[in-house]
Simulated scan of single mutants.
Amino acid sequence: MRRSGTPEAADFPTRPYDLIKEFTIVLVVVALLSAGLAALFSSPDEKPITLAVWSTADPADFTATAVAELAGTSTSAGYGPPYNYTPGAGQKIGPVGLQRAAGVRIPVDPAEDFVLRPLRQSPEPAEVTAALTTWSTASADQRQSWSSAYADALDKAPDGDPAKVAPGDYGPVPTLTAGLLALAQSGALDGQLLAQGRFYQTDYTRPMLFLSNGSYLSDQATAQHLTGSQWGMMNETGNYPGQAWLWLYTFWYQIDPFKTSKNADAEVWAIMAVLSLALVLVPFIPGLRSVPRWTRVYRLIWRDYYRGEPRPSRSTRGPGKAAG
């Protein structure tokens, strides 16, 4: 018996519905849209820059960087902690040296790690083996003299080409750098700097340091609009938008005194730490936490709810106040 006001199922129209068909259509449409939009708007897939790529594309820059590693004048050689002990090196916040406080956690000897050890571990020609022996038996002053003289000669050579360097007393340096260049162009140097006696090759610290000491990597970054002066932290490769939410962090590098400061990284980090802490503590900061209540923006957001609510009297607005 049917109850009053309760219609039976037969009172409603019905029609067949193929759930599998609908799901398949939606899946195909979404897949095509995703693939099409990804092809149109995705960032380019740039090939990685390796030591083999660098040494092949710009052998002159690679050779000059190898000489700087031997001379101890490269960026990483004087970087300080966490890679090596260098007096006065490292960024500071006021008198506090953050890098020195952390200490040397990843010991790196550029001459040994980037040039000499890879050559010793490779089946090099007899002249390279003899050059290694000459280098190892020479005094520190003699090594510095050879490296500095060859670096100056490379600067004066046309296009920095080692083949066009004027004759001089360079000791074994030209032979060592030529052997390292051949090793890098073969692709073996990438694997050697990654391995460093370990089975799992996942630590890219040394290859990245060697790459960053030359000008090739920075030139590529400039061409792709990725340097700090180009708001690079907010870009992807090429003229593509990237992590726009990083604008507040990279903003400080564009203004004085940070854009010319030697301690910019530490100073910007400190500013962002303070701002982040202030954001976390907003609910506990008197006055600032009351801005939403004073501006009454919440009534605009939830206007449908408050449209029928009476406006609170002045005596009942403050927390903890009794109605008058």
Rank of each mutant, 00 (worst) to 15 (best):
R2F: 01
R3P: 02
S4D: 00
S4Q: 00
G5S: 12
T6S: 07
P7T: 02
P7G: 04
E8G: 09
A9F: 09
A10C: 01
P16L: 13
P16Y: 08
D18T: 01
F23K: 07
T24D: 03
L27K: 00
L27Q: 00
V28C: 04
V28R: 00
V28W: 00
A31F: 08
L33F: 06
A38W: 04
A38R: 03
L40D: 00
S42A: 14
S42D: 13
S43M: 04
E46K: 10
E46P: 02
T50W: 05
T50P: 06
L51K: 03
A57S: 09
A57L: 05
P59R: 02
A60M: 09
A60V: 07
T65L: 00
L70N: 01
L70M: 07
A71K: 06
T73F: 07
S74M: 04
S76R: 05
G80P: 00
A89H: 01
G90Y: 08
V96K: 08
L98S: 06
V115R: 08
V115H: 06
V115I: 15
L116K: 07
R117M: 03
R117A: 09
P118F: 02
L119R: 07
L119Y: 06
R120F: 10
P125Q: 12
P125D: 11
T129Q: 14
D141A: 12
Q142S: 08
S145F: 04
W146A: 03
W146F: 13
Y150M: 03
Y150A: 01
A151Q: 07
D155A: 06
D155Y: 00
D155L: 01
D155I: 01
P158N: 05
G160H: 05
K164L: 07
K164R: 07
V165P: 06
G168C: 02
P172K: 02
L176V: 03
L176Q: 02
L176W: 02
T177W: 04
G179N: 05
L183F: 02
A184D: 08
Q185T: 01
S186F: 04
G187R: 04
G187T: 07
L189K: 03
D190L: 02
L194V: 06
A195V: 08
F199I: 13
Y200D: 10
D203K: 06
P207F: 05
P207G: 10
P207I: 03
L211Q: 09
S212R: 13
S215M: 12
D219N: 15
T222W: 08
A223E: 11
L226I: 15
T227H: 10
G228Y: 13
Q230C: 12
G238C: 11
Y240M: 08
Y240T: 10
P241W: 15
P241F: 14
L246W: 14
F251L: 15
I255G: 12
D256F: 11
P257K: 14
F258G: 11
K262H: 11
N263K: 07
A264C: 08
D265F: 14
A266Q: 12
W269E: 10
W269V: 12
A270E: 14
M272D: 14
L275K: 08
S276K: 12
S276Q: 13
V282M: 10
P283C: 11
P286D: 10
P292H: 06
R293M: 09
R299K: 15
W302Y: 14
R303I: 12
D304M: 12
D304P: 13
Y305K: 11
R311S: 09
R314L: 14
R314E: 15
R317E: 15
A322I: 10
G324F: 13
